[in-house]
Structures are given as C-alpha cells and as structure tokens.
Design a protein around this nucleic acid. Structure first.
Length: 727
DNA sequence: CGCGTCGTGGTTTTT
DNA sequence: CCACGACGCG
C-alpha cells in the first residue's frame, strides 16, 4: 500500500515519531511544532502501513473540539473507512464504558450526567436539609472539595479528618452528596472518570476486554491529565498495548483544576523503556516572537527542557505599549487593529488575550465605539442556558423519575402554584422515607396531606409528566421535546416574557428541537455502529450528549470578527496578530499566585502559551493606572516583561511620555520635542476649557494628545494645532 | 409570585 | 464598580 502521503508533509523529527517501532512513545512537542499532526499521522500510519484495525485504536483528548478536529483529520488521511475507531474525550469515553456496563457500575440504566450547575444546586439543598451553616461551609467550596477529592480518586471512606472537625464536616457533606447522587441515578463529571476507573479495576473480564480491544492508545495534551485519568491509562495499558503520548510540560496551565504535570515524569518511571522524542521546530511564529517566548519560559525551574527554533525570518520585534490607564490601553489596541485592517488584513486575524474576563469590558467598549465587530470566546454554553436546561429537565424526569435535581428544577417552572411550603413537605417526606421527590409527591397527592389547593397544583404537574412518560414510549426525541415544552407551558411562559431576552429564549428552545432532530439522525446512528452500544436508550444518550457537549459546534468561522478571549481559552489556537493586555503585577501574574512558586510558574507558562499564539506580530500592553473593583490602582509592570530580552522588544510609547520607565532601554527613542507635556498634566484649551492630558500618541508635529476636559469630556487633539497651554 | 432593594464578593474552564 | 443572590413587600 502506498503510504507516502502520510509521511511526505512531515519533517524528520515528526517522521521519526510517526514511524517509530517502539510501542511506548512520549513526544514532547513544543508550541506550534505540529503535535496533533504527529498524533493524527501516527494513527493513519498504523492503519495503512501495518493494517491495524481502526477498531483497536483509542485516541483521547480533553475537549470535544479537539476530538472532533482529530477525527476529521484522521479520516482525511485514511483511504479506508474509520469504522470502530474511538476518538473522544476522557469523559466521553468513560461515559460510554459506564453505559455499556451500568449494572457493574452500580448505576441505573437511565443514569444521567450532572453538570456543575446541577451539582451546586444539589449541594445547596443538602446543606439546607441538614441545617449545615452555609456561611461556615459554603456550597461552592463544598463543590470544590468534592471534585478535588474525586479528581484524586478519593471516596469519602478514603478520607481521614485527622480529628479536625472542619475537615470532618467537608467529608460528611461529600458523603451525603454521594448518597443523594446514587439514589437519584446522577453522575457528575468527575464521577464519570472515577467510576469508569473502578469498573475496570473491579471487573477483570471487562478490563481484559478493553485491554484487548484497545491495543493502541494515543493521548493528546497529556500535561493536562489528572490523577484519575492517569490511573485509568495505566490500568488500560499493559506491555502488550502500545501507548503514544503527546504533550508539552511548558503548556501545563490547568494545575489549579487537578492536572498533574508530574504525570509526565511518572510515565517515564511506570513505563520502562519509553522512547522520548522532542519536536522543537516551530512552524507558527516568526523568530523574534519565538525568541522572546523561549527566554521567558527559560526562567521556570524543573522543565524537561526544550528549545524551539524556526526557519522563518526574525520578523517584527515584540512591541510593548505602556498605557496611561486601562482605557488608553484599549484605545491603543483598537487603533492598532484599525491600522492592521487598513493595511489590508482581516479582523479575525487579531486576537486580544487577557488574564481575567473582567478585562474584556473596556476593550469591548473601545471596539464598539469604532464599530469594529468582535467575538468573545467562552461565554455561556448553549446547553447551559436556563431555558434549555428547563426543557431538558422535563426530558430527564421522563427518562428517570428518580432524578430529584430535575424534579426540583421544573416542578414549579413555569410557575404553577407549587410554593416553598409544598416543596418542603415533599423534601421532608423524601428525606425521612429515603425515597425520591417523585414518589414523595405521589404519596402526598394520594393522602392529601397538604392543603387542597396545593394538592391540585401537584396533581396538575403529575398528570403532565404522566402523559409525557406515556408519549415517550412511541415518540422521537424532538417530538417528545415539543410536547414537553407545550404541555408544561414552558414555551408559553417564555413567549410571554417581553423584550429581546424572551425572544432569544424562544429561539433557543426552537434551536434545541432542531439539535434533537439532528442528533437523532446522526449521532445516534454513529453510536449504534458499535455493537456494544447498539441497544442504548436513545433518550438517555441524547441527554448525556447535551451534558457532555457544549453545543458550540456550529460557530460561524466565516464572520470576520476580532477575537477576544482569556489566555486559557487561547490554548491550541493561533493568530497573525496577538495582543496580550494587562501585563501588570497582581493581574498577570495574578495576585493569588505570586506567593507560591509552583503557581507562579504556571502563570509564566500561561504567558508563554499566550505569546506563542502569535504568528507575525505580538503586542504586549501594561497600564500605569487601572481601575479595579472600583478603586484606582497603580500597578507595576509584570515581571514577565523583564524576562523578554531587550533586543527583541520595542517600546512603542514615546519615552518622554513615560512617567516611569518600564524597562531600562536601548529601545526606540523619540525626539523629545513634545516633552513639555506629561500625562496627567492639567492643560487649557481655548474652546474646550480645562482638562487633564491622559494619553499621547506619535511625536513632533504629528503628535496627538488625548485630553479629558471638564466640560466636554474626552477629546483627541493634534498637538501642533491645539495650542494647549499648561494650566 | 414577581419585583425591588440591599449586601457581598470578585482568576483561570472543560467535561 | 457591577453583577448576582438573598430577603421582604405589595
């Protein structure tokens, strides 16, 4: 078979990784070195060259987006069908395993997935039910505690409070939470992984089955794996399985949510003879940008060591702009983008990256002012919207009447006269008898143990649900959804809601119906292709899909928008022009990380990730004043700026205007003609009156100043004509 | 039950 | 500063 097309486009390092005979491989791949490419080609190589069945391959990533991309690229390379190939996220695969072996996992057949929102609600309810003081044990923190322990593979019974009553209470909450989930047939995200691991661990036939099936396991973004995920991989791969791992310790930015970079070291210990290959040639950034990023990351201790190089030219130096304040910073970024566009480039080639979401606001305002369209990444997921979750909760309760979380959500949504009092009776009975809310409701209706009006309201709800349950036997998912939305009055409820908000909610509900329809046609068929999953209940599978998939697949890449996102969400992306804003101590690195070396190192990696997103131009900004939480702050420039060598960094703000030099510098010197004016200075204009000079651009006769006038607000003036007088 | 007021807290995010 | 959640009133 001709396999040259698989190798043709690869460099030597990449080719070596793709074709190595070793069945344990760790590829340390720097940013922009083609790491996913290597993984994809390795799969194609194995299939086409050695005739390995796609059936025996498991490729794992972290996000649905990455998994979809990987699958697409593999299919493009292959000349044969990829049937049976498992490409997915850790969570998706764990979920499939649990569905296939729900009895062994001790889960009801129609178990459902709990998203973090539902999880928090359940915890809040537990705290209420058991009169635990929310002030001393906040629900958010309990959630964090539980998820952390699960990520570490720890159950309540594995935990020891060491006689610390505080700790004992956390463990107690965790324990109560587990019982509620189990009783309701609910599984949270961390539980998916942990329970799948336990199923494999405790059932040797199942474990053997998957070990034999997945002879070839490949993992992308390995530096993001947590303890359970690693244990899971360990369990699945014996010395008869091949393991191909791609990762970059310098891009580990998720330590705060349980990711363990140390897993890369463990790998070398646990898999003897593992071959380590490095991909160091970068195909993304021009020389100066890469050099700056290399120098920055060099400052981190305990790196596995990698030095990226490129064949491309030096390109532009990295630019640094010291803004007067956050609005000046935003204005500078927007001006630069306008200039970029005037030079004939696209808006979508520009990305503005920030450390925290709150920073986007000022930038948005500046973009709006200039009518530049933009898109913010990482907002709310489609399936997380309240109206969508309401509609889905009806389906969840239809599918599984034990689901107390779903019951709780919709019993009075839309409002139907079931108040707090009635709910209290239901909860109290459920808690006392150890039964579900649904069953408790039925008993209360039967014995009419509450006021007649409340009984009537409950009975109304029950009859809607009963009808839906009957209808679900014969209906498709989209039919059931339409029926649920109209019978319950949910659609009418949102249709009544006035304004833009109500309109978009109704639209979203309609969108949900089409998503269900589409799912029924496509995804379900995909799953049935695998005989192990052919007999799954379609409704449960659809509901799981809505929990695991963000629903953002239909983004419109065609639109030419400036891209705004956090540094975290920029990972894996690339843009010709990148701005990283807010490079100030306390903001980036964030205040909460500076005291701890390991967290500081992670911040530095985050900065490295941001910088290596840039292809042609990288612009960094820092502000001398920043309004933060309503207070004016005077931050000092980020330490990361000092790590960038001067010979690749250019300050684009005239020196005369910098009230405090950021970087001692041989960089770029404007003539000092206009040094009469300082930012912050009071000035007077013949028609506008008094104001404060807040910002400055250019030099000499072309210089423009921005003045905030007491009477007329912010104005841009050309210094040469403005005839300003110091006030 | 819906709306208004007061109070508080406020990295990063995927599944 | 501003967004969101907890309370209380009509």
């Amino acid at each position: 078979m001709d396999v040259t097309h698989i190798l043709d486009s690869l460099n030597n390092e990449q080719r070596q990784a793709v074709t190595t005979d070793n069945n344990r491989v760790l590829v340390l791949a720097g940013a922009g070195s083609g790491k996913t490419r290597v993984l994809v080609h390795r799969v194609a190589w194995a299939i086409q060259m050695f005739g390995i069945s796609p059936y025996s391959i498991l490729a794992v990533t972290f996000t649905n987006k990455a998994a979809a991309e990987m699958r697409g690229r593999i299919e493009n390379l292959l000349t044969i069908p990829s049937a049976g190939l498992w490409v997915g996220t850790f969570h998706g695969i764990a979920h499939r395993i649990l569905r296939a072996h729900s009895e062994l996992a001790n889960l009801p057949k129609g178990f459902q997935i709990l998203d973090s929102d539902d999880q928090l609600r359940i915890i809040k309810r537990i705290l209420k039910d058991h009169q635990i003081d929310d002030g001393k044990w906040p629900a958010k923190q309990a959630q964090w505690f539980i998820n952390n322990k699960k990520d570490e593979g720890l159950r309540p019974q594995n935990l020891d409070s060491q006689d610390d009553p505080n700790e004992a209470q956390w463990i107690n909450i965790y324990d109560l939470y587990e019982k509620v989930c189990l009783q309701s047939g609910l599984v949270d995200f961390a539980e998916l992984l942990l329970r799948a691991h336990e199923v494999l661990l405790n059932n040797s036939e199942i474990l053997d089955h998957y070990r034999r099936r997945f002879r070839h396991v490949l993992v992308d973004e390995f530096q993001d794996t947590n303890s359970v995920q690693y244990a899971w991989l360990r369990l699945l791969t014996t010395d008869r399985n091949s393991l191909f791992i791609v990762g970059d310790d310098d891009q580990s930015i998720y330590g705060w949510r349980g990711a363990k970079v140390e897993n890369i070291q463990s790998l070398q210990k646990d898999y003897t003879g593992i071959e380590i290959l490095r991909l160091e040639q970068n195909y993304r950034s021009s020389g100066n940008i890469l050099h700056a990023a290399n120098k920055l990351i060099e400052k981190n201790p305990d790196r596995l060591g990698k030095k990226l190089w490129t064949e491309s030219h030096d390109g532009d130096p990295v630019k640094l702009y010291t803004a007067y304040n956050e609005r000046d910073e935003a204005r500078f970024v927007v001006d630069s983008i306008q200039q970029w566009i005037e030079e004939g480039n696209c808006r979508k080639e520009c990305a503005i990256l920030y450390r925290s979401n709150a920073q986007s606001r000022v930038i948005e305002e500046a973009l709006l002012m200039e009518n530049i369209p933009y898109r913010i990444y990482g907002g709310m997921r489609f399936f997380d919207r309240a109206e969508i979750k309401d509609a889905l909760a009806y389906l969840r309760l239809v599918s599984n009447q034990l689901d107390d979380a779903a019951f709780d959500r919709i019993v009075n949504t839309p409002p139907r006269g079931i108040g707090e009092k009635t709910l209290q009776s239901i909860r109290a009975m459920a808690l006392k008898e150890g039964i579900s809310f649904w069953d408790a409701m039925n008993i209360i209706i039967e014995f009419e143990s509450i006021p007649a009006r409340a009984v009537k309201a409950l009975a109304g709800f029950k009859s809607v649900m009963d009808e839906l349950i009957v209808f679900s036997e014969s209906a498709t998912i989209d039919e059931l959804l339409i029926s649920a939305m109209s019978q319950s009055g949910l659609l009418a409820h949102y249709q009544k809601e006035k304004g833009e908000k109500g309109r978009s909610r109704v639209e979203n509900l309609q969108e949900l119906v089409s998503a269900a329809k589409q799912f029924q046609q496509e995804d379900e068929a995909d799953l049935a292709e695998d005989e192990e999953f052919a007999d799954l209940d379609p409704l449960s599978v659809f509901l799981a899909y809505t929990a695991l998939e963000s629903g953002e697949s239909q983004s419109d890449p065609g639109d030419d928008n400036v891209q705004l996102m956090t540094l975290h969400s920029a990972k894996g992306l690339e843009f010709p022009l990148v701005f990283i804003v807010g490079l100030e101590e306390g903001l980036f690195p964030s205040e909460r990380s500076v005291a701890e070396p390991s967290r500081l190192a992670e911040e530095r990696r985050l900065c490295y990730v941001g910088m290596t997103r840039a292809e042609k131009q990288l612009v960094l900004t820092t502000a001398e004043h920043r309004r933060l939480y309503g207070r004016e702050t005077y931050p000092i420039p980020s330490r990361f700026l000092r790590d960038i060598p001067e010979n690749v960094l250019v300050e684009v703000r005239p020196r005369a205007m910098v009230s405090r030099p950021v970087i001692s510098s041989t960089s770029y010197q404007e003539d000092d003609e206009s040094a009469d004016y300082q930012v912050g200075q009071l000035v007077t204009h013949a028609t506008f009156g008094d104001g404060i000079l807040v910002s400055y651009e250019g030099s000499g006769n072309h210089a423009r100043v921005q003045v905030n006038f007491d009477q007329v607000g912010m104005k841009w003036l050309v210094l040469a004509y403005a005839n300003l007088q110091p006030a």
